[in-house]
């Protein structure tokens, strides 16, 4: 059943590839805008790169949050999911995982290429990819709570950013921090372990909170 949810959402994403690509291109464009805004000075860009890529990843992941539940809500399939004999939190976990596979994984794959634009070292590029790999699922999981809370509200898309962006801050700090540490020649393992801890904590808590939020929103 858990697998059915993931399979279904991936199938739907395949049928609407444009949505997936929009998020990815948004990410690429935002990252590419920064050098144009602050100038092409290579050392400054290198020191900015971790923050820029991570902020762009936050925004890109958030951009697609509204879709996580709203289309299912509008056509009545979400109602059916709530009536499933499986625990709702498991189902939410499946949907968050599918969201990550569709929006997070492409970011992880493309980020090292964008890092090259900022002249990051090979080590830093690797750490960037690893930090995104650990951090983006947390974004999807926390985002699920926001998406569930704002389900069906007018202006839900803007509202969801107001709710989840402050909660994304720890991920941003340690995600970008890991890459910075690595470019400064330090060990990034402490940052990465903390990101891993966030991931575990949100895997346990977020689906539960999001499920409670969904029940409230659909009532």
């Amino acid at each position: 059943m858990f697998l059915w949810v993931i399979q279904r959402d991936l199938l739907l994403a395949m049928r609407q590839r444009a949505d997936v690509l929009t998020t990815l291109f948004f990410f690429i464009i935002v990252v590419s805008l920064f050098p144009l805004g602050v100038g092409p000075e290579i050392n400054m860009l290198r020191s900015m790169a971790p923050g820029v890529v991570w902020v762009a990843a936050l925004l890109a992941s958030m951009l697609s949050l509204e879709r996580m539940f709203s289309s299912d809500y509008l056509d009545g399939t979400l109602e059916q999911m709530l009536l499933s004999p499986q625990p709702l939190s498991l189902l939410v976990l499946g949907k968050a995982l599918a969201h990550w596979l569709v929006t997070g994984v492409p970011l992880v794959l493309i980020a090292p290429i964008l890092g090259i634009q900022f002249n990051l070292s090979t080590d830093a590029l690797l750490i960037l990819a690893v930090s995104l790999l650990l951090g983006t699922p947390v974004l999807s999981l926390i985002g699920a709570i926001g998406a569930a809370l704002t389900l069906g509200l007018r202006g839900g898309g803007v509202l969801v950013s107001l709710l989840v962006l402050p909660l994304y801050i720890p991920v941003l700090i340690f995600g970008a921090g890991a890459v910075e540490a690595s470019s400064a020649g330090l060990v990034a393992s402490a940052h990465l372990s903390l990101l891993g801890a966030f991931l575990l904590a949100s895997l346990v808590l977020a689906p539960w909170a999001a499920a409670a939020a969904l029940r409230i929103s659909i009532e």
Binding site: R8, L11, L12, R15, Q16, L74, D75, G76, T77, E79, Q80, L83
Partner: peptide, 15 residues
């Protein structure tokens, strides 16, 4: 024990 069919069809257009 229940099956509920609401006034929304609960089918996905793209499937």
């Amino acid at each position: 024990s229940i099956t509920y069919l609401g006034h929304l069809n609960g089918v996905k257009d793209n499937l």
